[in-house]
Each structure stands twice: as C-alpha cells, then as structure tokens.
Design a protein around this nucleic acid. Structure first.
Length: 426
RNA sequence: GGGGAGAUACCAGAGCGGUCAAAUGGGGCAGACUGUAAAUCUGCUGCUUCGGCUACGUAGGUUCGAAUCCUACUCUCCCCA
C-alpha cells in the first residue's frame, strides 16, 4: 500500500517557525514513506523543562503527519555529557541519579505522544541498553575507526572549547550519540534524527557513521533555538528552569510564565507551541493586534500549553488563581473564597505556617516567614510602598491582628504584582 | 621546572593608607505609565536590637587607622621549557 502522509511536515514546521535545516532529501523521504524518526533527551534532571518542549513537539508533528516517533532517553549519553553549547566541563551524574531522572522523564514523554495507535505508535528507547553490553575496545575499534579526529575537531562543540580545555570524555560524546543513530538505523530502521539546531553537529556525526560504516543514508531535521525578543534566555524564570513536573513548577506558575510572554514573542510562540491551524492562529494574531490589552495571544498560548502539560484540572486552577490575583482581587473578594477554593487556587504560591499573628509587626512577619530575605529588605520594600496584605497596601507601622485572617486562617502577602506569599495560622 | 599577572558585592569591573558598605555598567526587585506586554523615567539592591556589627581569596603582621603596605598560604590565568 502506498503511504501518503497526513500533511507535509516540513512545510508545516516552516510556517510555524520550527524549521532550521535538514539534510537534502529529507522532505522527499517524508512524503514517500512512513518514516521512523527520533529525538534524544538528556537525563540531566528528574523532570523535563520547557526547553525540551520543542523537540517533543517535533515528535508530535512527526506522529500527526503519520510517521513513527521514538523518544530516546540517554542512559548512556547522560553518563558522558554533551559539550554542545557548554562553556565548561560538566559534572558527571551517578548511575543511580541518571536512572532516576530517566524514569521520571519517560513518564512525562508518554503524555505527549500516542503509544497505542497501531502502526505508528510512539516508542521510548534507552541507549544504555545497547551501550551497556558493548566493550570499550569494541567501541573504539568498530565505531571510532570510521570517524577521524580531524572531523571531530572541526565541530563547533569541540572548537569552542579548545581554549578552555575539554576532557576526552566529552570529546567522545559526538561519537556516542552518533552511534545511537547508527544503531537505531540498523536495528530499527530509523532513518531520521531530529533535535534543536545545537544538535546539528552531533546528528551529522551519526549520518556520517551510517554512511561510512553502514553504507546507508541517514536524514536529519533541526528546529531553531527559541529566542526571546529582549535577548534573554528562553525558558528561565527567576533564574530557574520552568519544569513540566507540577511539584517543581506548579500549574499556576507554569501558566503565569506563558502569560508573561511579550507581544512579539507571543506571536511566534503561538505557532511553535500550539497545534492550532494556520487560519485560526492568523485570526488570533489579528484580533490581538486590534485589542492588545485583552491579551488574546498570551491567554491562548498559556491555556493551550498548560492544558497539555497539566491537564484540564491544572489549567482550571491556574486560570482561576490568575483571575483572582490579577483581576479585581480586593480584600472583599478574597474573603469570599471558601477555604478549599482558596487553597486550590493558591496551590503553588509559597507559604509558611505560623502559630500566632496577633500583634506582630509587618516587618518581622515578612522577614521571619522567609517571604523577604531580611528585615532590612522588608523595610526597603515597605518604604517603596510595594507591600500589601490581602491586596491592600500597608506601611511600616502595620501590625497584624486576628481580624486580618481570611476565614480565620490565612493571610495573603504581596510585594509588587507578581510576588505572593501566604501565611497560614494553625 | 622557570618567569609573569591576578583574586573586590549576583556578574563584569574601578579603587591602591583615612572622606569606602566600596565608583561605573549589567542583572535583579520595586514605583510611575500601562495591558500581568514592550519601551521609558525614578528609586532600591550586606546585616542590625539602629548603638553598631560583619565584609574586598585564606591566615598572620605593620599602623592611631588597611580593600589598599608587608609575610606566608591557597587558587586562577598567561608565557617559556
């Protein structure tokens, strides 16, 4: 039976801004037959973060177009450490840590792909399974022999580190990843590797290995690095990563991260991070331009991804929390919330339990609960007139009393618009 | 192994005996304006019982007084073998 894809994936990726480059012939291949393609994930932490979303979305598009996606978790490559884009040698993780991280990531990957849809069901593979039984001698003889040091040295990931220095371990990384591609090509008929543009060098080492050792052809496709219009790094918030794991980044924080996208970025991100049709998106962008203050793009973007990652339930809580915190939130409306509503809405906002609040000064409260770093900082914040209690601005002289407790139990502290903290009396 | 340079707050980087809790820039936080946007402008950015206290790689020393001078140590970078 002749294969015909559901859509031209390369064209799709291009208009979405998800296409950077590919090996010639990749588009033709994808139009002709059902292709098995894979993306590798590094087990550096026990959760994926939003920087991993782009490679995941590449797999999603691959599957939606009718091809077969594989997610490779890097049990072996994680032990070596990818030097791409790194300024300094990486700290090695223990085998136990890698194993733990891998299992967590595997679970997360499973929610994005369809593992039960017949012939093009997704699969997860772990490169530890083929590297573990392989001996060092076997590797340098059968793999290393095909790739010259000159070739490896020419890679940006290596060149950029020649001044600083780089261990043999990280130098070998591209060979290890390259062998993955060769192995999958040979054993599972996987012809395509995808990834971020920073992976180009590693991917090409793989196609080179396939050509020299296997006398075959591997294909590749990369997505551009996601940038922010102000030049700062995408995917960080308050200096930390934005994780997919709700215990590391709550649905509320996750939703807020996307809500805070600037207009310029939102227009690009809505194409990249949602699966909406082109016409729908164009329409949304136009609407947004007419009434930018309504933040259509940010709401749709944040809503779509939050639902995808955290489900309907997580999205709803994030949404109602945001409505209350950024909407009309007056002391009165806060007090109207039932206790269970309050806690489900503020799940994810930092909090601290205290035994007594009556008669305590605002400065002490801010510092002692850890909301602000020190009394000095609390005083400064109060002088800036940036602190509010239950959505009402307060001054340095403010003293808490039991009547400030909402439902006799909790108090909402804020510094500025975006810093929130809850005090719970028990 | 030999020679040289350096280590200052979140980062970069000035200061080279008192007036230094330390210039300036970046980052961060807040205020104004707004749309939870961008840009812009403004303020803040060690702790404190508000008396002070602790801080310029570490440990000593000189001095009325040290980030600044001396000694040793640790670490980093560069050049030569």
């Amino acid at each position: 039976m002749k294969f015909s894809p559901n859509y031209n994936i390369i064209e799709e990726l291009k208009w979405r801004g998800l296409y950077h480059q590919s090996i010639p012939g990749t588009e033709e291949l994808l139009m002709e037959e059902m292709v098995s393609g894979y993306v590798g994930f590094d087990p550096t932490a026990d959760s994926l973060h939003i920087g991993n979303l782009v490679p995941i979305i590449l797999l999603v598009h691959l599957q939606r177009a009718g091809h077969k996606p594989y997610a490779l978790v890097g049990g072996a490559t994680g032990m070596v450490g990818d030097p791409s884009g790194k300024k300094a040698e990486r700290q090695l993780l223990s085998i136990e840590e890698i194993q733990h991280n891998l299992n967590a990531q595997k679970k997360q990957l499973e929610q994005f792909l369809d593992f039960d849809c017949g012939i093009n069901s997704a699969e997860v593979v772990n490169n530890f399974s083929w590297f573990e039984p392989m001996s060092f001698l076997e590797f340098i003889r059968d793999v290393g022999k095909h790739i010259s040091v000159n070739y490896m040295m020419a890679k940006d990931s290596v060149k950029n580190r020649l001044e600083e220095g780089m261990s043999f371990t990280e130098f070998s990384y591209q060979l290890v990843q390259g062998y993955d591609f060769y192995y999958l090509w040979k054993e599972k008929n996987i012809k395509l590797q995808m990834g971020g543009s920073d992976q180009w060098g590693n991917i090409v080492t793989g196609t080179e290995l396939i050509r020299r050792k296997g006398e075959g052809k591997g294909f590749s496709l990369t997505a551009p690095l996601i940038t922010k219009s102000d030049g700062s790094k995408f995917g960080k918030s308050e200096g930390g990563n934005v994780w997919l794991d709700p215990s590391k980044t709550s649905p509320y924080e996750f939703y807020q991260f996307w809500m805070n996208t600037s207009d310029d970025d939102a227009e690009r991100y809505i194409k990249i991070f949602t699966l909406h049709q082109k016409a729908y998106i164009d329409n949304l962008i136009n609407q947004h331009k007419e009434t930018p203050h309504l933040r259509f793009l940010q709401k749709e973007l944040a809503g779509f991804i939050t639902q995808w990652v955290h489900g309907e339930e997580g999205y709803k809580t994030a949404l109602s929390a945001s409505d209350i915190l950024f909407g009309k939130a007056t002391a009165a409306s806060l007090r109207e919330l039932s206790e269970s509503d309050f806690f489900s809405i503020f799940n994810g906002v930092k909090n601290k339990e205290v035994t007594d609040i009556d008669g305590i000064n605002i400065v002490e409260m801010c510092a002692d609960t850890g909301f602000l770093a020190s009394k000095s900082e609390a005083k400064r914040a109060l002088q800036e007139n940036s602190v509010s209690v239950n959505s009402e601005k307060v001054t340095e002289e403010f003293i808490f009393s039991n009547t400030d407790l909402i439902n006799g139990k909790y108090i909402l502290l804020q510094r500025g618009k975006k810093n929130k903290f809850i005090i719970i009396k028990n």
